[in-house]
Structure formats: structure tokens, C-alpha cells
Amino acid sequence: MKQNNIIRYIPVLAVTVLVLVAAALLWLKLKPKDEGLKIDETANVVTEIRKIAQFTSACYYEDVILKDKKANESLGGKVVNSFSKKDKPILEDEIVIVASGNVRAGFDLSKLSEKDIVIRDSVLEVTLPKAEIFEVIVNPSGFDVYVEDGTWSHEQVTKVENKAMNKIRKDAISDGLLEKATELGVTKLTELFKTFGYKEVVIHTK
């Protein structure tokens, strides 16, 4: 008796599935191609101009992948997995960001004072300031949202992006960016100053 009831519903189910598939196909055919969001034209306003003298001698490039998870907010983030001993939410949002950035380092030549440049006969002696990191750059074009499950606010994404930038900065320092910037900077500036006619150029760093 029960089996007969089930068999009776099969054609209804089949027709429902067919109608749904046909509707989906029709939707895909009729839906216009999404050209993507376009921003409105706005002005670029220069708010500050600063004179600098940054001699960049080394650059570190890195691609990092950062993953973050949070409790799904649609359930208030309070539904806890009762099967697990850990206080872990049952539904989690996940985001994976690929960041391609660079770190620029070198000497800030605006810190050179008169006493840092000494000329004896035709020997030029220059004392450079310590090599430093000028900036860590990861622009919007350097970020790729690879996985995005759930809702992530702009602030939450910014936090993950900042983590990626900090990682790139840390890796650059541990990979010897400052040492390389010092070594390369001294070589390049020695070559440059020699072209000014000095027979010998001696460069020290602080």
C-alpha cells in the first residue's frame, strides 16, 4: 500500500524536476551578460606634496596566501558544535586572500648633512644613514579574493589584508632586504659618485 503511494508521486516529482530544469535553462539564456560594476568618474585631489630624496636600492617581492575564518553571522555566531568538545561554531565563514606585494628599501639621502660628505685631495668620503624600509606596497590590484564563503565586511577584509602586508614586511626583513639594500646601495652610489670625476670614493654607513 505504502509502495503504491510512492510510485504515484514519481511522475509528479519527475515533472517538477523537468519544469525546474527548463526554467533554469530559460533563465540562463535570457539573463543578460553581467558586464560587472563600473565606478563613476570622480576627481583625483592632490592633498599633500612632499619633497623627498629616497634612494631605493633593493626591492622584495612576495606572494602570500592568507586564510581567515569566523563564525557565521547569520546565526548570531553562537551556534556551537555539540559533537566537538571545542567551543567551535557549527557554521563558519571562510576567506582566502592572495596578496602580491613589494617592499622597497634603501637610503634616505635627505638625512645627509654637510659633515657626511668629506673631500680629501681627490678622494670622496660619504657617510650614509642606515638603510631603511620606505614602504610596503600591496595595492587593490595586488589582492585577489580566492575563496569567499559567508559575509565579510570591508573592515574584516582590511584586517586580513593588513595581516598579509605585515607578513610580507616580516619576510622581507628576515630574507635580508636591509642588508641587501645596504650592499647594493653602497655599490651603486660608489659607481655614481665615481662618474663625477673622483679617483676614489669611500662610502660608510652609520
Binding site: I39, A43, I52, A53, Y61, D175
Partner: peptide, 26 residues
């Protein structure tokens, strides 16, 4: 880890701060 350290030879002499409003209507 995908990283690379390259040599540069650039002298930056000016820095501009540019602000922009980015707006979109969908």
C-alpha cells in the same frame, strides 16, 4: 613561499598624496 629580491637604482624626489572618492551604483 614565492618571493624574489631584486636590485634597484632609483631616486625618488617627490611624494604626492592623492585622495579620491570611489563610488558605484548597481
Amino acid at each position: 613561499k614565492i618571493s624574489e629580491l631584486t636590485e634597484m637604482n632609483e631616486l625618488g624626489t617627490v611624494e604626492y598624496k592623492v585622495t579620491k572618492v570611489i563610488k558605484a551604483s548597481d
